[in-house]
Every structure is written in structure tokens, then in C-alpha cells.
């Protein structure tokens, strides 16, 4: 199997550019955040098309737009400075996403396989999905734009680690990893992880925001975030989409393990951690339907779930050696 080194180095170049563009986008989002005033509740719901006037009784925070429709067809006020920063941030995020996508395509072409055969590529792909999921959220609910800096921050950290600590040259994978189940299983894992990253960010912000709502003196900066409800809902919807995908990833992983290692489940460290993460997210979904566990306890569980995912990616691949250690790290 020939690996095209020239092409591989273009991939590295694209990776660097994507990262730089993300950093710029994050800075712009941060500036927007710093310049903007606390969100008036109405803004959040301006796009709700229907029946917006009714929810107030079920919404003690008053964030439901009772007067939601007031300015929908009034002439647009001129864009504020903050808004212009934010919009540029979004444009840059889209650009970064394009570069990022190109990087993985190039990497895949260079190695003639799916471009997530080692930890560097896996992390990069997870970040790509996270940014992609974020752009989808933005498209549907532009009023959540203020989360931009907070979503991009973990993405940038992860990509930075991927590009430094985890970096490996383009290379084909060992025979055990060469199977179409690899493509299916790892792709599902990548997609689920990326979406769960978004859910984790939303839950962290939700928890901070709730502390602030309880005692306005604390975490005053969170006052500019979207309301706690909107954060909670974002986290839930992301998790509800990602959980079946994660389940699928675990099942296809078991199918692959059956073909490669002689058993569908063997409590290999990676399998164990994937199982734990799955159980924690099941806890989260349960908590959402258990009286007294909605809200803060559920969000805490979601954050724990994401911590387990990160642990799975780093600790298990690097420190623990199991059959799954395909990190491809030197040494």
C-alpha cells in the first residue's frame, strides 16, 4: 500500500490552517460576547413560528416569548458592532470547517483508507463533526450564536493536542484494523463523539448559568448566555441524537471484534470504557424522565458522560494498552 507523502503534507498544511481559522473565529465570537449586553429574553425566541404566546405558565423563567412576535416584521435595526463580529466569526467557522474537511479528505486519499485510522485523525474527525453539528445548530437557531466561543474552545484545545501530542504521519493501518467494519464502527464513534462534545459544552454552560440564576453575583459573565432552558434543550437534543449513534458504534464494534479477535465482547479497556460511557448517557436520558432529577442533576450526568468520552480517547489509548491501542504513537 503506497502512501502519498506529498499529499499527506498538504493535509498537515490544511490542518494548521483550519486550526488557525478556528482560533480567529473564536476570538471574534469572544469579542462579540464581550460587547453584547445581556440577552433580552425576546431575542431568543424571535424565530419561533407558531403559538409562541402560550408557554408562559409552564415557564417560570419567563423566557418564552410572550411578546415574541413584536418585531418580526418591523424594519431590521442596523446591525450592532457585536453582531458584526459574531457574524464574521460564523463565516470564519464555516471557512475553517471547509479547510478541516479538505484536510481529512486529503489524508484519506493519501493513505487510501478512511481518514481516522489513528488518534490524530480520529481527534481531528471528532472535531470536524463537532463543528459541523454546531453549524447545524446555528443554522436552525441563529440566536444561539453567542455560544460560538464556548463551542470552539474545546474544539481548538482538542485539535491542538491532536496536532502536537498525538500527531502521526499518514500511514496505512495494521491488518486487524483493515476491515469495512472499521469504517462503519469508527465513523459512528466519531459522529457520536462530535455531537456529544456539543452536548457536553451546553450542559457545562447550563450548570454555570443555573448557578448564576440562583445567585446573580456568581458567574456574572454567564448572564449573556442563552437562557438555561435553551442550553438544557440543546444538550438534550444533541444527546438524544448521539445516543443511538453511539449505541450503533458499540454494536458494530462488537461485530468487528467478533470477526477480528474471536469474541464479540471481551472487556478490553476500550470496550469497558465505551460501555461505561453508554451507561452514563443512559443515566442521563433516564434522569430526564425521573421526577426530581431533571435539570441540574441530569446536566451533571451529561458532563460526566462527556468526561468519560474524553477519558476513553486519551487515557485508554495512550496509557492503557489493550487490543484497541492503535494510537500509532511513536515509542
Amino acid at each position: 500500500m503506497v502512501v502519498d507523502a506529498q499529499l499527506g503534507s498538504y493535509g498537515d498544511l490544511l490542518f494548521g490552517s483550519a486550526l488557525a481559522v478556528y482560533v480567529l473565529a473564536m476570538i471574534l465570537h469572544a469579542v462579540e460576547y464581550a460587547l453584547s449586553r445581556n440577552l433580552a429574553p425576546v431575542e431568543e425566541d424571535a424565530r419561533v413560528p407558531v403559538a409562541a404566546g402560550a408557554g408562559s405558565s409552564s415557564d417560570p423563567a419567563g423566557t418564552t416569548g410572550t411578546t415574541a412576535t413584536t418585531d418580526t416584521d418591523a424594519p431590521r435595526p442596523p446591525r450592532s458592532r457585536a453582531e458584526r463580529y459574531g457574524r464574521t466569526g460564523v463565516s470564519l467557522t464555516v471557512l475553517g470547517f471547509g479547510l478541516h474537511l479538505a484536510m481529512l479528505v486529503v489524508r484519506g486519499l493519501a493513505a487510501e483508507r478512511v481518514p481516522w485510522g489513528n488518534m490524530y485523525e480520529f481527534s481531528a474527525a471528532v472535531c470536524l463533526v463537532a463543528v459541523g453539528a454546531w453549524l447545524v445548530v446555528l443554522y436552525r437557531r441563529p440566536e444561539l450564536r453567542r455560544l460560538g466561543a464556548f463551542v470552539l474552545l474545546p474544539v481548538i484545545v482538542l485539535m491542538f493536542l491532536a496536532g502536537t501530542v498525538l500527531y502521526t504521519q499518514t500511514a496505512p493501518v495494521v491488518p486487524a484494523l483493515r476491515s469495512y467494519w472499521l469504517a462503519i464502527h469508527v465513523t459512528a464513534a466519531v459522529i457520536a463523539s462530535g455531537i456529544l462534545l456539543l452536548a457536553g459544552v451546553a450542559s457545562v454552560l447550563y450548570l454555570l448559568r443555573r448557578v448564576h440564576d440562583g445567585n446573580p453575583a456568581r458567574f456574572a459573565w454567564t448572564a449573556r448566555l442563552p437562557g438555561a432552558d435553551a442550553l438544557d434543550r440543546t444538550a438534550y437534543r444533541a444527546t438524544a441524537i448521539a445516543f443511538p449513534i453511539w449505541t450503533f458504534a458499540v454494536i458494530t464494534g462488537a461485530i468487528w471484534a467478533e470477526a477480528a479477535w474471536g469474541r464479540y465482547w471481551g472487556w478490553d479497556p476500550k470496550e469497558t470504557t465505551a460501555f461505561i460511557a453508554w451507561i452514563v448517557y443512559a443515566c442521563y436520558l433516564h434522569a430526564r424522565s425521573t421526577a426530581g432529577w431533571r435539570g441540574r442533576p441530569a446536566a451533571t450526568i451529561n458532563v460526566i458522560g462527556f468526561a468519560v468520552m474524553v477519558f476513553n480517547l486519551f487515557f485508554v489509548n495512550i496509557v492503557v494498552t489493550g487490543l484497541h491501542s492503535y494510537a500509532g504513537l511513536p515509542g
Binding site: 409562541a52 408557554g55 409552564s58 415557564d59 418564552t64 437557531r141 435553551a230 434543550r233 437534543r237
Partner: peptide
Amino acid sequence: VDAEPGPDDDGKDDDGR
């Protein structure tokens, strides 16, 4: 038991595309 209208349903998150 688990379906009080309040937390279970949010009238506003409804652009469900």
C-alpha cells in the same frame, strides 16, 4: 406521572426541522 406539561414540553423549541 412523568409527563407534566411543564418540563416535558417546551412550546418554543419548535422549529423541529
